[in-house]
Design a protein around this nucleic acid. Sequence first.
DNA 1: CTGAAAGCGCTAACAA
DNA 2: TTGTTAGCGCTTTCAG
Lengths: 295, 295
Amino acid sequence: MLAAVAASGYRINELARNLRTAESRLLLTMAPDFGNPFYAPIVRGIDIVARQNGYYMLLCDTGVELSRERSYFDLLRGRRVDGAICLDPAAVQKALAEEASRLPWVACCEFDPDAGVPYVGIDNHAAARDAVRYLIGKGHRRIALINSGQGYLYGCARLSGYLDALNEAGIDAESAGQIELDSLDYEAGGQAAVRLISSDAKRPSAIFAVSDTLAIGVMNGLRGAGLRVPHDVAVVGFDDFAVAAHVDLPLTTVSQPMQLLGETATGLLLKRLRDPRAEGLGVILPHRLIERRSA
Amino acid sequence: MLAAVAASGYRINELARNLRTAESRLLLTMAPDFGNPFYAPIVRGIDIVARQNGYYMLLCDTGVELSRERSYFDLLRGRRVDGAICLDPAAVQKALAEEASRLPWVACCEFDPDAGVPYVGIDNHAAARDAVRYLIGKGHRRIALINSGQGYLYGCARLSGYLDALNEAGIDAESAGQIELDSLDYEAGGQAAVRLISSDAKRPSAIFAVSDTLAIGVMNGLRGAGLRVPHDVAVVGFDDFAVAAHVDLPLTTVSQPMQLLGETATGLLLKRLRDPRAEGLGVILPHRLIERRSA
DNA sequence: CTGAAAGCGCTAACAA
DNA sequence: TTGTTAGCGCTTTCAG
C-alpha cells in the first residue's frame, strides 16, 4: 500500500501542511543590493544555519526602497515566511520598526539598538577609529575619508570613529577632504579619488574608504592619475571581502566576520521563533585590521 | 464594521488563501553563485516582471550542488512556490530534467534545447566566434583561451566557437594555449594569465576569457608580469557586466542582454503557468561585441 | 495501536 | 445583492 503511494508519484501538499501547522519553514533575507559581493558570505552563513535547522532560506533584494521592503514584510505578516533577517539601512528599518517590531525578524550589520529588534553587527565606530589610528601610526596626517551616504547607519558610525581618531591625535579634520557617496561601486571610488587629489593645496597622503569596492576604485583612480600606492597615497578599505586580498595591490582593510554575522543572525532569529517573548538582545562581533600592501 | 476589522489589526492568513486557491504567488530563482555580479541584472529583470504580474520573486543559491538544487525543486513539488527560473549549469539541469521536466520551470542562460524545458539564452557559439574573429581581424594569430570547466554548457559552446574561428582562418589551435578553470574569480584569471605567458615559446598576443571577471584578473596578472595591455597582449572578456567599462583599462567584451534575459525568462514562465500544456519553446537573444581599449 | 473525525482560515459555489 | 456552507489536504485529537 505504501509502495503504491510512492509509485503513484504522490507528493505531499505543503500548502495544506503549512496551514495546519501554521508555519512555512521559510526564512527570508532582505538585502539592499546583491550586486554587492559583500553580502555573499553573510547570506551563506544564514543559509547554512537555516538548513541545519530544517528551514529554507530565500533571498530578496529591497533596492533600499521603503515600498519594496514593506511588501516583503507583508510576507511575514501573511505568515508566508516564518521569519526574516534584514540587512537594510537602519534608517529604513527604523521607519518600519514601530509597526513591525513585533514581527519575527532580526537586523544584521545595519541596526538600531533602540528599535526593540534583535541585532548582530560590529562596532563600526571602533573599527573606523582603529583604521585611522593605524594610518596615523604610519606617520600620515592628511587622511581623507570616502564615506557612504548617511542612509546607512555604519556611515555615521564610521565617520565619527574617523573624526575621533583624528581628534585624539590633534589633527584638524579639515586638513584633508571628506567625501560622501551614494554609490559603493568601483567607478564611484575612482571618481572620488580623482576629486581628492585634484586640489593640490591639501592633497591627502592617505585615503580611508568605508568599503573595499570603493577602495579598489580609489586605487585605480590614483593609478590613472599617475600616483603610486602606497608610496604617494596609502589606501585603507573596509570589509575584507573575497577580492581584497587578490587585487593588483593587495588591500589593507578592516575585516568583518561576514559569515559569522549571518550565522549569528539566524541563531537569534530561530531563538525568537522558538520563544516569541524572548528578549531581543544585541550581539557585537569583533572586527580586525588586516595589514597588506596598500597602506 | 469594516473599520473595526481594520482597526483590530487583522491580517489575512495567506497560508489559508494559498491552500484554497492552490497557489502561492511565489516565484523562485535558482542561481549558482550570487557572489558573481553577472547575475545581479538578470535577477533584477526577473523581479521586475514578476512584480508587474503580482508575484514575489525569491532567490536561492544552489552552489551548483545537485543536492541543494534538488531540495529547491522540492519547493516546486510541494507547491510552496508556483514556478522557478533556473540559472544553473545545464549538466545539472539535465540530470534533473527527466524527473522534473513537467514541473513549471524555465532555464535561463544555461539550457539544454533537448531537455523539454523552455529556455532563454544567447548563441554562445556565435558569440565566441565573433570575439575571436575580431582578434584575428586585428592581426592576432596566437590567441589563447581561458575557459570555465565543462560543467557549464556555455563553456563547451564558446570553446567550439573559438575553435571554429581559428579554423576558418587557418590557424592551428595549438599555436597558443587553452586553459580550463574551475573558478571564475579575479584571482583565477590572474594565475591563468601568468601561466600562459610563462612559456616564451608560444606566448599569446591575445587572450580571450569567457567571463569579464576572469578578463580583469588577466589584465592584473599581465600588469604584474610587466606586460602592457593591449600593446603586448590584447584581452577580450565576456558578459559586459557593470564593472567592465570602468576598470583600469576599459574592457573589450561580448555583451549579453542580462536584464532582458531575466525578463524574458519570467515571461516564459508566466505563460507556462497560465497554460500548463503550452509547448516549451526556446528564445535566443542577440549578443554584441563592445569595443573598448583592452583589445 | 489503528482509524475516524474535526478543524486550520480562507474562497467559491450556492441559496436566499 | 447578501449570507451561508462546503471543502482545499493536511495534522492532531479522540474514540474504538
